[in-house]
Design a protein around this nucleic acid. Structure first.
Lengths: 130, 130
DNA sequence: ATTCGATATGCATGGTTTTACACCTCGAAA
DNA sequence: TTTCGAGGTGTAAAACCATGCATATCGAAT
């Protein structure tokens, strides 16, 4: 779920995690929730997406509920019943959010890349002596 | 301990956390650990630093041990005994690491600022309609 | 030699997060 | 109108993590 980290001399990596929260802080949309949303978009089902993300359906559902409460708009059109049991797809707003988040994430990656490169150089300048 | 988040339209905030890890991933140096190190540098004591950081001494000590194992070099010169009980100070390597990390963090903060601004704009472009 | 307080460490406890499981709801298609 | 499988929900169990506490170790200063 976390980005693959980058290496320095001593097998050191930089990791990061980002998430969105509401004003009160008692709700969050994490990286994993966005991955879940992406999978729902791809697979058309919360259940399948949860499996693909290797989390329980219970957690997936809870995360979505939490996110929707926080944003105060629907992220997913949920269809229940039918021979196939039902299916789900992202709302237009959710797709927009997802795209904006992906772009944000990409910029984060680039920033980390650049910042960590400088860090690595600083660490190599005067190698540890003890 | 986490950075103060930034706002969007729907009272939405961006949060993030960065940390260093080893190759195997079973060790980490978090933001809080760096804050602890900074406090140790300032106060000359793990105990006082833990108090200042509002974490238990137990955790502080565990975090340091974990970090030193990961990096495979001493971060702290620990002095036990004496009338005062003992004291601690950062090794030169640790000070260097701390400085590099501070610079890294600063660059990261700046980048995040810019990235989130773009995110906010993207979200405002076509306001949600459902 | 005694003392004192910080370093050092194991383990029980408690709180939070996630999973596991049970069970109900829905509705298009057969 | 019966069926089927995903959506939806409560709750107990398990997994995790940090704290609290107890207790030992160390050694300069007295």
């Amino acid at each position: 779920m976390d980005k693959p980290p980058r290496q320095t001399k001593h097998e050191l990596f930089l990791n990061y995690k980002i998430w969105l929260s509401g004003l009160t802080g008692n709700g969050r949309i994490s990286d994993t929730t966005f991955e879940l949303l992406a999978k729902i978009k791809e697979l058309g089902s919360i259940k399948l997406a949860a499996q693909a993300c290797d989390i329980s359906y219970r957690k997936a559902w809870g995360d979505i509920e939490e996110a929707e409460k926080m944003l105060e708009y629907q992220l997913i059109d949920k269809q229940r019943g039918g021979k196939d049991g039902g299916h789900s797809q992202l709302t237009p707003s959710c797709i927009k959010l997802l795209e904006a988040y992906d772009a944000l994430h990409q910029k984060f990656d680039d920033s980390v890349e650049a910042a960590f490169e400088d860090f690595r150089k600083a660490m190599l300048q005067k190698p540890s002596s003890e």
